[in-house]
Design a protein around this nucleic acid. Sequence first.
DNA 1: CTGAAAGCGCTTACAG
DNA 2: CTGAAAGCGCTTACAG
Lengths: 341, 341
Amino acid sequence: MSKMPTVKDVAEYAGVSVGTVSRVLSGETAVKPILREKVNGAISALGYRPNVTARALRTNRTNVIGLIVPDITNPFFAQLAASVERASLECGHSLMLASSHDDREAEQSHVMAFLDRSVRGIIVVASSDSPGLHFEAPVPIISLDRRFGAFPLVSTNHAQAAALIADHLYGLGHRRITYIAGPANTEAGRMRQEGFVSKIARFGKIGEPVELEIVHGKFDYDSGERIARELLSRPTLGRPTAIAAASDQQAIGALRAARDLKIDVPRKLSVTGFDDISLANLVVPRLTTIRQPADMLARRAVGLLLDEPPGSGDEMVDGSLIVRGSSGPCPQLKTVVSHTN
Amino acid sequence: MSKMPTVKDVAEYAGVSVGTVSRVLSGETAVKPILREKVNGAISALGYRPNVTARALRTNRTNVIGLIVPDITNPFFAQLAASVERASLECGHSLMLASSHDDREAEQSHVMAFLDRSVRGIIVVASSDSPGLHFEAPVPIISLDRRFGAFPLVSTNHAQAAALIADHLYGLGHRRITYIAGPANTEAGRMRQEGFVSKIARFGKIGEPVELEIVHGKFDYDSGERIARELLSRPTLGRPTAIAAASDQQAIGALRAARDLKIDVPRKLSVTGFDDISLANLVVPRLTTIRQPADMLARRAVGLLLDEPPGSGDEMVDGSLIVRGSSGPCPQLKTVVSHTN
DNA sequence: CTGAAAGCGCTTACAG
DNA sequence: CTGAAAGCGCTTACAG
């Protein structure tokens, strides 16, 4: 391992000054073609690679974007991280990833660590609401999916998307529905709930009334399974005919509870999720859910970060309903029909 | 945002030289207690944070560990990444994560990018074998789970673990088994296959013969589903009574194929996986599999990286068998028993 | 034990 | 358009 060549080596080899080498490297300023070629020749002859650290020290800026997610093990965040990495790469930036483990202190310290490395900008999927928090950061910060402090948010239009689910279930005839909500201390959790609830309420006014029960949980499998198990253990009459969950993971947990209790989905019970993680299409039955456009969200977030000046307003992207096998007509209706026969 | 304070500011505030400040910061060299306190006072008074970029430029070393995985969307790699991040943090290092999308070129360019940032070391979960490749890197490189070039590997003892599955299935009476192998161009794929096959072969010699069929696929859900669907579409006689998959994802795909074809698992068919991703415990029936000790693997990998001198030998960690609902006694045996009755 | 000074590899006004 | 020089914020021999 001989020492790496530096601008100085390149300059000597090409017979120019280091300033000229630097100018060729940056590509911005005009350099006489003859010199430019000499420099490029020297660069490839020596196998020169610019020292990004030195560059960062001088310019106080890097090509690294920092991403903080609550838990990389959560499939939706993993997908989001993959999308953000791709979007960053497309813009010539690398990604530094950190997991906050849903811990606000860890989140903060990751932000500081990123700042210390003078990243180009930070994208954070917040662990939970941290209202009011809005320090002056020397680089742009964007919230993704879940709002971080008071920083601009790029997210799915949770309310609109949740309303799509409400539409779907109401249309299938369900009038006794349980909504498994996400944590109330996340904006995503609240927005999804509100979108769902207010749509159902509207149906109640213009159409038939709906019995809506709301149970709060975390966004994970366990919450969904636990809550659904309790719900479904009730006597048949008190049971919902549809469970709408605030996340796919909850919904998949609910699916498992239904199976354990031998309740046929979708014939006796409809279950819906939110996110469209890859697993949603693999469970049995396949899950009806909302697709969050991860690639689009990521591109927008990176875009806002890199804009000059950086974007400062929220951006919403519509989610879309994906109908699969876990939702079907309300069993009550069927009974009525067969009764008529 | 006033400019960040530097060592110089701290030095002035404390009435010492910048050298002394630096020495206090490093903690290594002895500094007179009175000065040390003055410096520390100045540091907290000014809210000084060392500039890691400058430090990196000077020392040519950072506290960043680079991790490259083939696909962060794969739950096993996500888990591994989470474990590596935790292990790094425990050792005071941050993690830079990159996804190679199973592309060797991308992998290489990520390695270069990490080298450019003078990371402390690189851990790579290789996308596929890249034999012979063994360049002199200025920082340690360790392979994790799947070997990268000729660099030392930390992995589960795939062969030992696969043999555990063979034991388990043979013990349950299965004599017609299909092994869904991983890609032959991955060491993990080959080792698991070899461990499984040679154990079965041994049984064939010392016990009853086993019909073993081997089908190759990728490590993903789709491969498992597709292969199992074909296998299970055969007339009952030609069908295996057990499918051992080289990954949980394949196994879960196989589970889905079995369900679609209305083949009862585990009563008509046993299915086993490998990895113990969190999903393995959530599918129906829960998956019998091999647990890879992700935390341990990660800690070892980070350990080797940070050792002085860096570790240069492979390390194997034993996997353990997790028996759940997807494996059971061979149906053939049951038939015989009921025939006897 | 401490200070003054060099230097890590770049970029960028400043002259010319 | 190009070169000489300063300087980004540190660390670390080198004297003393």
